[in-house]
């Protein structure tokens, strides 16, 4: 079965890619399978200069998921270009660079540099774990539009904006970045959460709060994609708690054009490959003959026969 999906800047052989921050720059996972099996690779966030991240502990388990507050640790954009990108470039797999920053200027600088070496940018305005920037841009529609417009004009490749679920109105955010020139959306980043250790009476994560990911957030992400699909014309890379080919179908039905797999890579480093292998059979199980027929398939209200029935 043909699993290919075409998106701005990205010709994907299948709609499955690892999510940013859960896959490093690919080297560690290349020991388990050939990265060319993936639809694309989304690299760990790049910032203007090296960042050492937050104090440890940086992760905590939750019911059906986990909290993390890594704090965007990365070697900085220049070193990522020289030391990390070449490894991925040697492989036939599209590369998406996740770009983060504390100021609009930093986002612009990083984008200008790294967009010469990758196929698309994932604009990270939704990291909840850094003190400055990040999610501030992702929870205010005016700021989100401003940084998106600047990054789009600095970028040599299409820009996908990664939205934060920590907002009251996700549609407003999606529309703001659409009108600012985004080529696509990435939905969603983690939800801010906290766990407290009864023995120490303190949060388990040193940062206090962390980003909640895993199966626990899947229904929230599905709901948000379902809402946004109806309101904007941008392609969506969906993510949040995907652990099976069935989950992928659910995301595509909600309106995602492709999906990213995050925390599940920690449980099972083979998960992306296993889901890609299972996808044809699962599509067949639900009566689909190609990916395009699944995308947005849950929006039955657009089908007149269903309108008549109601």
């Amino acid at each position: 079965m043909n699993l290919s999906v075409n998106l701005p800047g990205l010709s994907l052989k299948n709609p499955v890619m690892p999510a940013s921050g859960c896959f490093g720059f690919g080297k560690e996972f290349a020991q388990f399978y050939d990265l060319e099996e993936l639809g694309a690779v989304i690299m760990k966030a790049a910032t203007g200069s090296q960042r050492f991240g937050n104090a440890t502990p940086r992760v905590a388990e939750t019911a059906s998921g986990m909290l993390n507050a890594i704090g965007l640790q990365n070697p900085g954009v220049d070193q990522i270009i020289t030391d990390e990108v070449p490894f991925l470039k040697e492989r036939q797999v599209p590369i998406i660079a996740n770009v983060a920053g504390s100021t609009v200027e930093e986002y612009v600088t990083v984008t200008g540099k790294i967009s010469e070496h990758v196929d698309a940018i994932e604009l990270n305005i939704s990291c909840p774990n850094v003190k400055e920037g990040g999610v501030q841009f992702g929870t205010d529609a005016t700021l989100a539009a401003e940084v998106t417009a600047e990054v789009v004009s600095a970028s040599h490749v299409p820009v996908y904006v990664k939205l934060s679920p920590n907002v009251t109105d996700i549609v407003e955010m999606a529309q703001a970045v659409e009108s600012a020139g985004a080529s696509g959306l990435s939905m969603v980043n983690t939800l801010t959460g906290m766990r407290i250790n009864p023995k120490t009476r303190k949060p388990i994560i040193a940062n206090g709060t962390g980003g909640l990911s895993g199966a626990a957030i899947k229904p929230i992400s599905i709901r948000m994609i379902h809402q946004v699909y109806q309101a904007v014309d941008l392609p969506i890379i969906g993510m949040g708690g995907i652990e099976s080919a069935d989950d992928v179908i659910e995301y595509l039905l909600a309106g995602a054009n492709a999906v990213a797999i995050g925390s599940a890579n920690f449980k099972n480093p083979f998960i992306c490959k296993e889901i890609i292998d299972e996808l044809p059979e699962t599509l067949e199980k639900y009566g689909f003959s190609k990916i395009d027929d699944v995308i947005g398939g849950a929006h039955i209200e657009k089908d007149p026969t269903h309108l008549l029935r109601s």
Partner: peptide, 10 residues
Amino acid sequence: GCGIGACFAC
């Protein structure tokens, strides 16, 4: 987190 060096938790 991952235990293989990709996630930078530890």
